[in-house]
Structures are given as C-alpha cells and as structure tokens.
Design a protein around this nucleic acid. Structure first.
Length: 346
DNA sequence: AACCTTGTCAACCGCTCAAGT
DNA sequence: AACTTGAGCGGTTGACAAGGT
C-alpha cells in the first residue's frame, strides 16, 4: 500500500500539456517504449511526474486513440456494459477499441446519464425511476400524446396512477429498444451483447410482470417458447434478476437462435398508449381483437438494421428524425420513433 | 458589449491493488 | 509476513467555449 509520492514533488509542471511536451513524450515512447513511468520523465527530458505522463499518453497521445463523436453502436455498447459493470470505466473501455476510460467516463457523465434521467431511468440501476419528478417528462409526453389529460383536474390518486403507467411506458420503451438491438446484434455475431440485451429485456419483463396484477398492462407470451429463460418467465418462476448480476442466467442465451421476439401493441381505435399486449412476432391470433395493431419492431423512422455495418451516421441528426412512416399510429409521440438514447427532450 | 450560465473534457487527486523487496 | 513502490482506477476539478440574457 501507500501512495505514489511523484505528484507531491515540488517543481514539477502541472496543467495543460504544450505541443513541445507532447512531442518529447511521443518521440521517447516511440523510440524506447514507456518502461517505468516513474523514470520516464527524466529520461524523456520532461518536467512532469510519471503519472502525468502516463495519463497524457494513455488518454491523448496513444496512436490508436479514436477521437471524435461516439457512434450509436458505441453508445449502445456503453449502455449495455454499464448496466452490467457499473462505473467500471476501464472494463467498459476494453470493449471499445480506441476509446479511453476517461473519455467514456466523460461521455457518460455529460451525455448518457442525462439522457437516461430524462427518460425516467435511474442511471445507476438502468431501471425506471418511480418518483414523480423523474417521471414528469413521460407524464408530459403522455399528455402530448393523448391531449386528454387535464392535470389540474387530477386528484392525487390519478396522478399516482399516471406516474405508474408512465414508468411502465418507459420500461416498455426501453425494452423495445433492447429487443431491437438484440435483433441487430444477431446479425452481427455479437453473441455476448445479445445475451446481455436479452437478459436486460427479460429482467424488465419480469419487473413489469410482477406488477401486472394491478396494472393496465396485459402480457401474453408466445405459446411455444424454446428459450429456457423465456419459458421460465412465461411460467412466472423467473426471479427478478439484478442487472448487475447476469451470470446466473446468461448461459440461457448462449444459443443465438433465440426464438423469442416481442411486439408492443397499441389499440388503434382508442389510442390508449398504456394498453399493451405482448405477442410473438407475427402472432396475430393471440389476440382476436382486430383493433389491435402490431407496430414493426424496428422503429418506423429508421431503416431495418443492415447486417454488418450501421447505415446511420451517428453525428447526423437527420438519421434520428422521425418520418412516422410504416403505418404507425399517428398518436405516437415523436420519441417513440427515435432511438431513446439519442432522444433529447428539449 | 458585458455578464452569467451551462456544457465539455483534459487533467489532477486520492485511493486500491499487485508485485517486488 | 510486513513493508514499499509503481501502476491503474474512479471521482472530481477547473479551464475554456458556446449560448443566453
């Protein structure tokens, strides 16, 4: 144990690095390797502590650093890994070639965390928050969607009910997003991520199913479910699996041919966004009510994921702009058509 | 134009851990 | 076994830029 004294030494420069210092450091490491970081500054002719040199190299000067905006795929990877690993930035960074833990940490704190909060999710647990304040954006979105809600006329119980429903909406929204990503992952051989995604999805399903007795939601699982985890869920025996402890159920998802797929259905006549039935993909017989529509699993505003590389430009705002095509219900708010992670409530 | 607020990100700080003595 | 040292990690800070008033 014991703290490194290097930064306490007097006379060593701190603060931003100059181009000259960068050049010295790069030239030295390219020629000799970094070796002992403690010894490096002296050998390289730098008036810095070894720690500062190491940080500068690993976070900025390393030749394999990828700079610029995070792609949508990288965002999704960070989200998934964070839901499992928590704030283990270096572990997350090891899955993102060219990205540093510092960069990912900054990106999380300045972008992703806020977006999750805005969506009504707890950024640490990745579960929907249930306090009223955090649910407000969704309550407002619901109001926009139906234009039927007069908040001033609501009693406390009604507000509580709306709050609960908005939390479930958030869960379903996130779930659809996860399942969508799961589908695209299958085509890119990202088995690990697929497993994670499915695990998160079923964790959400579990949490939703646990309250369905008192909820307006009604889920029906596919009649034939080959996947063990999904099957156990369908029999109501799957426990609520904490997101941060996926190992016990991950093996269930080792088979990439997971047959389970879900759709979120909305009543096209009533426009009740809170009434959902979970069906298997293409299963129109599970619910005989012809007024129910099954929106495409992939958000209508975005083209279906193409095998291999992403077709969308991560920095291009137009790639997430809703066009509301594909016959989706017109009463859906904009954010239903957008990548939830990209969506920002302005 | 000046000031204030907010967002971003490079860099620092303090801690833990593992290897070495 | 006890201690020292170096490396690495996560949290935090502060400088700067951009936008708003």
């Amino acid at each position: 144990m014991g703290r490194s004294p290097c930064c306490d030494e007097n006379g060593l420069k701190k603060g931003p690095w100059t181009p000259e210092e960068d050049q010295k450091l790069v030239q030295y490491i390219q020629k000799n390797g970094h070796g002992s970081w403690r010894a490096l500054p002296k050998l390289a002719g730098l008036n810095r502590c070894g720690k500062s040199c190491r940080l500068r190299w690993t976070n900025y000067l390393r030749p394999d650093i990828k700079r610029g905006k995070f792609s949508q795929e990288e965002e999704q990877t960070i989200l998934h890994l964070h839901s499992i690993l928590g704030n283990k930035w270096s572990a997350i960074a090891s899955h993102l070639p060219g990205r540093t833990d510092n960069e990912i940490k900054n990106f999380w704190n300045t972008h992703l965390k806020k977006k999750l909060i805005q969506m009504g999710f707890d950024p640490m647990t990745h579960q929907p928050r249930t306090d009223l304040v955090s649910s407000l954006p969704y309550l407002l979105a619901l109001a926009d969607m139906t234009e039927l809600i007069d908040y001033q006329s609501l009693d406390e119980q009604a507000v509580m009910r709306l709050q609960a429903e908005s939390a479930q909406l958030a869960k379903l929204h996130y779930l659809q997003y996860l399942l969508q990503y799961s589908t695209s992952s299958l085509s890119t051989n990202s088995y690990d991520q697929t497993a994670i995604t499915n695990m998160e999805g079923f964790s959400l399903l579990n949490s939703i199913s646990n309250i369905k007795e008192n909820s307006v939601m009604n889920f029906q699982l596919p009649p034939q479910v080959d996947n063990p985890a999904a099957a156990s869920f369908s029999h109501g025996i799957a426990s609520s699996q904490p997101l941060h402890h996926p190992s016990s159920i991950l093996p269930h998802f080792s088979d990439p041919q997971v047959p389970f797929s879900s759709q979120i259905c909305l009543n096209s006549e009533t426009g009740q966004g809170t009434n959902f039935t979970m069906l298997s993909q293409g299963d129109h017989t599970a619910n005989d009510d012809s007024s129910w529509v099954i929106p495409p699993l992939v958000s209508p505003s975005r083209p279906p994921t193409v095998t291999g590389t992403s077709t969308s430009n991560p920095g291009d705002a137009s790639s997430t702009t809703s066009s509301h095509g594909g016959g989706a219900p017109s009463y859906w708010p904009d954010f239903f058509f957008e990548d939830p992670i990209m969506h920002e409530i302005s």
